[in-house]
Deep mutational scan, measured.
Amino acid sequence: SASLEDVKTAVLGLLVILQTKLYTLPASHATRVYEMLVSHIQLHYKHSYTLPIASSIRLQAFDFLLLLRADSLHRLGLPNKDGVVRFSPYCVCDYMEPERGSEKKTSGPLSPPTGPPGPAPAGPAVRLGSVPYSLLFRVLLQCLKQESDWKVLKLVLGRLPESLRYKVLIFTSPCSVDQLCSALCSMLSGPKTLERLRGAPEGF
């Protein structure tokens, strides 16, 4: 439990870093931090981490990651405290083949985003970082199938509809809506759902 406290501190630090690096160059920093966060949550489900502190780590990670939004130009952003989304000039939600690297070039400044813009690109060529939603999407499927803490599952179920409104997140990387529907149906009809959940409301 003591070591998990250190892990929790590290994860919180990564969330803060991602919130900053999403809007700064090099964009590969945001890509790497995002991948680290998603990989860490995957390990929770792989090794069945069920301690309360592990659940709190997942809760905080999902609470942040499910706020990711994308505009029509595929640029990622996060809402501010007033709910207004600021889109990044440097990070996009497109999935890119590994051989192309985590970044790609664009020939010049991008068109203005639909929300308040981030800082304008400084040079004639900007390297865009790929932060594909499919990585998070796979972890969300694991959550629906394996999550043991009701608070975490409730958060994910509550945030998913709003995330799905931003269709560009889903359609720019390999996210299977069929698998999502299947996971939701299995969660509702499967007898093991109630068996594994802690803290579920009576009558769920």
Rank of each mutant, 00 (worst) to 15 (best):
S1D: 13
S3K: 11
L4Y: 08
L4F: 13
L4D: 02
E5W: 05
D6S: 05
K8Y: 13
K8N: 09
T9R: 07
A10H: 00
A10E: 01
L15F: 13
L15D: 03
V16G: 15
I17S: 03
K21S: 04
K21N: 03
L22S: 03
L22H: 02
T24W: 15
A27Y: 08
S28Y: 11
Y34I: 05
L37C: 08
S39N: 13
Q42R: 12
Q42H: 12
I53K: 02
I57T: 02
R58T: 00
L67G: 14
S72V: 10
S72W: 10
N80D: 13
K81C: 10
K81S: 14
G83P: 03
G83E: 05
V84N: 12
V85A: 07
F87T: 06
P89G: 06
Y90T: 10
D94G: 07
Y95Q: 11
M96G: 10
M96C: 10
G101P: 13
G101R: 12
E103H: 14
K104G: 14
K104C: 11
K105A: 15
T106C: 14
S107E: 12
G108M: 14
S111Y: 14
P112Q: 15
T114Y: 13
R127A: 11
L128D: 13
G129C: 10
Y133P: 03
R138Y: 08
R138E: 15
V139R: 01
L141M: 09
L141P: 01
E147Y: 00
E147G: 00
E147A: 00
D149S: 07
W150E: 02
K151Y: 09
V156E: 00
L157N: 00
G158N: 13
P161Q: 14
E162C: 07
R165Y: 06
R165F: 06
Y166W: 09
K167L: 03
T172D: 04
S173A: 05
C175L: 04
S176L: 05
V177D: 00
V177S: 03
D178S: 08
Q179Y: 06
Q179F: 05
S182P: 01
M187T: 03
M187K: 01
S189E: 13
G190D: 15
P191V: 11
K192I: 07
L194M: 09
E195S: 11
G199Y: 11
A200F: 12
P201R: 08
E202P: 12
G203H: 09
F204M: 11
